[in-house]
Design a protein around this nucleic acid. Structure first.
Length: 426
DNA sequence: TCTGGGGTCCTAGGACCC
DNA sequence: TCTGGGGTCCTAGGACCC
């Protein structure tokens, strides 16, 4: 049959409690215990094992609020270790690529696969094979949902999470209404807090009800994104698989401080460090930036003690990825927005209007530029070999009292050969 | 007294995602 | 006492132009 008549079959592979699973890989003692992983600065809970979810610990909950439950139930706590998670993520994605299907890496722990080339009746079996392979090769457990559209595969995935087999296919089911009826509106992909409120006001409480709303009503009262979501619930693909990794459009580096910061000098050091980090990132992707924004703010949770938040942007005359130039601009902005007498909690830099460094319009125009560019290259190489910030600029400082809090780090580095886990063949 | 209308481009802010 | 970080896209509204 022609490919036009063939149904789309999209699989969503999602790693279960990904960060927790990563930590468990290197620490078998916590396999069946409740475990949570904290965000930067040990601020919030961002990954929970099933056992931790059962205890009522909420996603995104501030750590200090959950501390009572955590201590009482001897929950294992970890500070986040992004280089470890990133490394394991790459291993999972490499394994998925072996299945030779079109693939979109959607986030650190999720990927969509196009399984349209398999016959309808085979996809569930294929799903199980993928799941077993990933588990065996990387040690990471996944859930897989398969359906005609991305939005439906998200729903299939939610169902798969609750099943022993970890795989759910909605392919070949004539009437999905009984399934969609059980999915609360806020659990639909693309429906957040605000839309949930809006839909509920209009009597839409589950996925089936949204599916049955008229497209024109949705478009008129919300926007095209919402109408796409509803179409996808009907089984009509509107959101394509993004198989080519397009270049990013912006780059943000921001951190909350381990301690409140009041002095300009310390703020300047922090911002300079974020700039070095961001410019190195865009250089590694051969990008240049058109503008930089710097922002500072005090804690939004203590608005009564004098809240202050400000941001400003500077445009570069010529798009650049030169650390020195970027730090200079950032410091200029900071001088403009810094105010004495506030306890700053967070600062960040944002590089926007990114474009390809090799574009004709961005060509280096002078010998001096060529020198700077080669200087940047050698800084990056040295830092890569001897660890970040071996080479830095003067304003970046050395004390870093504002640095993050990470009390519960597992200190596992997969670049260190001896901490690699051994995966047994089953 | 009374002051058009429509197009384009840009930006800030909001909403969403993981 | 203690509340993450990094993205994308859309829309409304202002500036500007003819």
């Amino acid at each position: 049959m022609s490919s036009i008549l063939r149904t789309k079959k999209i699989a969503l592979v999602d790693c279960n409690s990904f960060y927790v699973s990563c930590e468990r890989l290197f620490n078998p003692k916590i396999r069946r215990k409740p475990v949570v992983v904290l965000s930067n600065n040990d601020g919030c809970i961002i990954s929970r094992s099933t056992e931790a979810k059962v205890l009522g610990i909420k996603m995104g909950e501030p750590y200090f609020k959950a501390k009572d439950i955590i201590i009482k139930n001897k929950v294992e706590v970890f500070s986040s270790n992004y280089s470890l998670y990133g490394d394991l993520s790459r291993r999972v994605m490499r394994t998925l690529k072996r299945f030779n299907s079109d693939m979109e890496i959607y986030s650190i722990d999720e990927a969509f696969l196009d399984l349209s080339n398999f016959p309808d009746q085979d996809v569930e079996k294929v799903g199980k094979e993928i799941r077993e392979t990933v588990l065996q090769w990387t040690g990471i457990p996944t859930s897989i949902g398969i359906a005609k559209t991305k939005t439906l595969s998200k729903i299939a995935n939610q169902i798969a999470k609750k099943k022993q087999s970890g795989v759910t296919s909605l392919i070949g089911i004539e009437n999905l209404d009984p399934v969609l009826e059980k999915i609360e509106i806020n659990d639909v992909w693309g429906v957040g807090k605000q839309l949930t409120k809006f839909y509920q006001k209009h009597g839409v409480y589950n996925a089936k009800q949204l599916k049955n709303k008229s497209n024109s009503w949705i478009k008129k009262s919300s926007n095209v994104l919402s109408s796409r979501t509803a179409m996808e619930l009907k089984g009509i693909p509107c959101i394509n698989l993004e198989t080519t990794t397009s270049k990013r459009k912006s780059c943000v580096v921001s951190r909350s401080f381990g301690k409140r910061v009041e002095r300009f000098q310390e703020l300047k050091e922090a911002v300079a460090n974020y700039c070095l980090n961001a410019s190195e990132k865009i250089r590694s992707e051969s990008l240049v930036t058109k503008a930089i924004t710097v922002f500072v703010r005090t804690s939004p949770f203590q608005r009564n003690y004098g809240y202050y938040s400000n941001a400003k942007t500077i445009d570069f005359p010529i798009a650049t990825n030169n650390s020195i130039e970027i730090v200079k601009a950032a410091v200029t902005i900071l001088e403009g927005i810094f105010k004495n007498g506030y306890q700053y909690q967070k600062a960040g830099v944002m590089l926007t209007g990114l474009s390809n460094a090799n574009d004709k319009t961005n060509l280096f125009s002078s010998e001096k530029d060529e020198k700077i560019s080669s200087l940047m290259r050698s800084i990056d190489n040295t830092n890569h070999r001897y660890g970040r910030s071996t080479l830095s600029v003067a304003s970046a400082g050395v004390q870093k009292r504002w640095n993050m809090k990470r009390e519960y780090s597992s200190k596992i580095d997969t670049a260190d050969f001896y901490s690699l886990p051994t995966i047994r063949a089953i």
